[in-house]
């Protein structure tokens, strides 16, 4: 589904992603690991078509990401690492806005809101971090997308919500969706992922099946020569 080949993106300060290649197949959850500043968010922004790589290709379902951003977005659910919402908007209004733009109904949204106990009547900016994250979760899952791009999705969630969220990811996997999940939580990776991609200083250092890894933490630290 998601196919990245030799993607390079450099910020004006020289940082970014260098020659990254990996893919996310149907019905697969890929964990995207790396410390802060490794380039996870940068890669994800290229996949979403927010930016165009300096070289290399980046495709979703065979369609180039930057050129077909609008079309691709119909099938993508996205949670941003730095979550942002339109200002002065209640969660309910936000969901209604999304459902109008995406042309999907509110049934699934209501289910998800109930499941995550989202306070839909409050202005989103006034919610606490964890509650904002829940709003982002609902907005990413509400249209039942084929591809899920999750950038640190469980940050700020309490244990119960994390558990529910992982259940949601596993359900999506069983339904044949593709999930790319950047995270710092090994427990999360072990419970959901089929494969892990480890990135360091903008370069992909490892791309392994989880079944081939005996100790995830050890492998991760080895990549970083700690």
């Amino acid at each position: 589904m998601v196919n990245i080949k030799g993607l390079t993106f450099t910020y004006p300060n020289g940082k970014g992603v260098k020659n990254a290649s990996f893919e996310v197949n149907k019905g697969e959850v890929v964990g995207f690991l790396g410390p802060n500043g490794a380039g996870k968010t940068t890669t994800i922004r290229c996949i979403l078509g927010f930016m165009k790589g300096n070289s290399g290709t980046c495709k979703i379902d065979g369609k180039e990401c930057f050129e077909n951003a609008e079309e691709n977005m119909k099938d993508i659910g996205f949670i941003a690492g730095e979550i942002a919402f339109p200002e002065n908007m209640r969660a309910k209004e936000y969901f209604e806005f999304i459902s109008k733009i995406r042309g999907c109904d509110m049934r699934r949204c209501d289910e998800l809101c109930k499941m995550f106990e989202v306070d839909t009547k409050q202005i989103i900016q006034k919610l606490s971090k964890g509650n904002k994250q829940k709003v982002a979760l609902v907005s990413a899952f509400m249209h039942d997308p084929k591809v899920l791009i999750l950038d640190e999705p469980s940050s700020g969630l309490d244990l119960l919500m994390q558990h529910k969220f992982l259940g949601l990811v596993n359900k999506a996997k069983a339904e044949g969706k593709s999930v790319l999940m950047s995270t710092h939580n090994f427990n999360e990776v072990e419970r959901t992922c089929d494969r892990v991609v480890i990135i360091k200083d903008g370069e992909i250092r490892a791309d392994k099946k989880l079944t081939d890894i005996k100790n995830l933490e050890k492998t991760f630290l080895e990549v970083y020569d700690v």
Partner: peptide, 16 residues
């Protein structure tokens, strides 16, 4: 950046 990302992650083109 933040405002744009919350619109562009919906099916809305840059032009629109």
């Amino acid at each position: 950046t933040t405002t744009m990302s919350c619109y562009l992650c919906l099916p809305i083109s840059r032009r629109k």
